[in-house]
């Protein structure tokens, strides 16, 4: 087996990515950002962080049932987003 196959390049990259994402998230504290920008940065990095964890370190895409795992995650995301934004819509934005 060559060195290339033995070296877990994907996982090292994933590790580096998650470190970078953590630093980016920290920047919200470091720099004087408006709350809105801060929350957006946090949300985006959090989602990326979660997906890296899921794919790289929890091996979501590696087993036979990866289809059901991804379908499940997407479905969960759909329901969570609908519930949260739907609640904001009915209770705050669209409330008279």
């Amino acid at each position: 087996m060559s060195l290339k196959e033995l070296f877990p390049i994907k996982h090292v990259m994933g590790f580096v990515f998650s470190l970078i994402l953590t630093v980016v998230a920290l920047s919200v504290l470091m720099f004087d950002l408006s709350p809105k920008t801060g929350v957006i940065i946090l949300l985006v990095t959090a989602f990326m962080q979660a997906s890296i964890q899921l794919v790289m370190f929890m091996h979501a895409g590696e087993s036979e049932d990866k289809h059901s795992i991804y379908t499940n995650v997407l479905y969960a995301l759909f329901i969570a987003l609908v519930t949260i934004f739907g609640t904001l819509l009915t209770m705050i934005w669209g409330y008279q």
């Binding site: 479905y75 759909f78 329901i79 609908v82 519930t83 739907g86 819509l89 009915t90 209770m91 669209g94 409330y95 008279q96």
Partner: peptide, 25 residues
């Protein structure tokens, strides 16, 4: 199953939200 999660506000159409919300639901 997917649609069942996007209709809940029709149980309280008359309880204060606007036309836009009611139309969506």
């Amino acid at each position: 199953s997917a649609l069942s999660f996007v209709v809940w506000a029709h149980h309280f159409y008359t309880m204060g939200h606007g036309v836009m919300v009611n139309s969506i639901f």
